[in-house]
Design a protein around this nucleic acid. Structure first.
Lengths: 167, 167
DNA sequence: AACCGTAGTATTATAGTATAACATACTGGT
DNA sequence: ACCAGTATGTTATACTATAATACTACGGTT
């Protein structure tokens, strides 16, 4: 099926990064926005992992010929990337995740593994509808939603299961 | 109907605070937990408003014969109150809200007004089901969920509407 | 009543997250 | 070359959260 849920251990991660960057180029191009070195670096770092990174984690990894960028710099890049849908903020982690389906702006929920920190971004049309209905009923003017589930990804769940291999 | 959505401007707030405290007493009693002065004060402050308060906001309001408590103290009270379902953390606000339906531990979504900061806590059975199904499909072991909608409450929405009275 | 273990509190210090403010530099159009 | 607009570099500071440790209050023994 098309829905990717959690990334497979052996997926082609190089391709996955490359696709992300290519899409970002195109997205900036089409909006007449600049895909600067700063923005590029931050997105690359996020694409390199399938988990959210905090701003200070990003700062530390930022390889900048000796110097370290200040937080504001990272926040600016993130703000931009988020505004065009290339990055999502995960509220329950205070951290940022590269969008795994850029270009499709539908409503998604994030499944956050509390053990390995991997995050799956999955479509949540049913939840979208439920929220829209709820907003209608209550007279609430909906702007955005925060949908996050916390628990264990399949790998970590089976590793921790009572019948698992960790007795 | 039973569902209260956003609090009415003229609702009996004294009764609402009183009911909250009474329920808290009972909840602690039945679990053999102590409802100490610390915990009591924090809950009272939260019950006094229908919006989430940050820890440092709570600290400032904490009237403690001249002294101010340290953050850790507030966090401890909150942790306790949250553990028995009397208080919820609103992730997208980094703040805490008194539960408006204590005793019923069903899945709720928070509707956060970005203007007046009021929060409605409404039942979200449909969303609960949708998440459970999703977890099943993906092999995710669900522990908890963060469901928050951001936008404008009915009052603020009508005050801001293009045909409204604020032109 | 004195003792003891546990839970809760008080306090200090420090870690982690986020933004304000302002000077500088780059880009594209005239 | 100049200008306007956008993005960056830097310093400083505000806000949020936790660790570590000593102390105190309470409930159950003996």
């Amino acid at each position: 099926m098309d829905q990717s849920f959690f990334p497979e251990r052996q997926h082609d991660h190089e391709a996955c990064i490359h696709a992300g960057m290519a899409h970002a180029e195109a997205a900036c191009e089409s909006r007449n926005e600049r895909f600067t070195a700063n923005r590029r670096s931050v997105l690359e770092l996020l694409l390199a992992v399938h988990r959210p990174l905090g701003v200070y984690e990003l700062m530390k990894q930022f390889d900048w010929k000796g110097r370290r960028p200040a937080p504001a710099q990272i926040y600016r890049a993130l703000e931009f990337l988020e505004s065009i849908g290339l990055v999502h903020r995960i509220e329950s982690c205070n951290a940022y995740l590269a969008c795994s389906r850029p270009g499709r702006h539908h409503c998604t929920i994030f499944l956050v593994c509390e053990q390995c920190k991997t995050v799956a971004e999955v479509e949540a049309k049913r939840m979208q509808d439920a929220i829209a209905d709820l907003a209608d009923q209550t007279g609430f003017e909906l702007h955005s939603q925060v949908l996050e589930a916390r628990g264990l990804c399949p790998d970590c769940a089976s590793a921790t299961a009572p019948d698992g291999s960790d007795h």
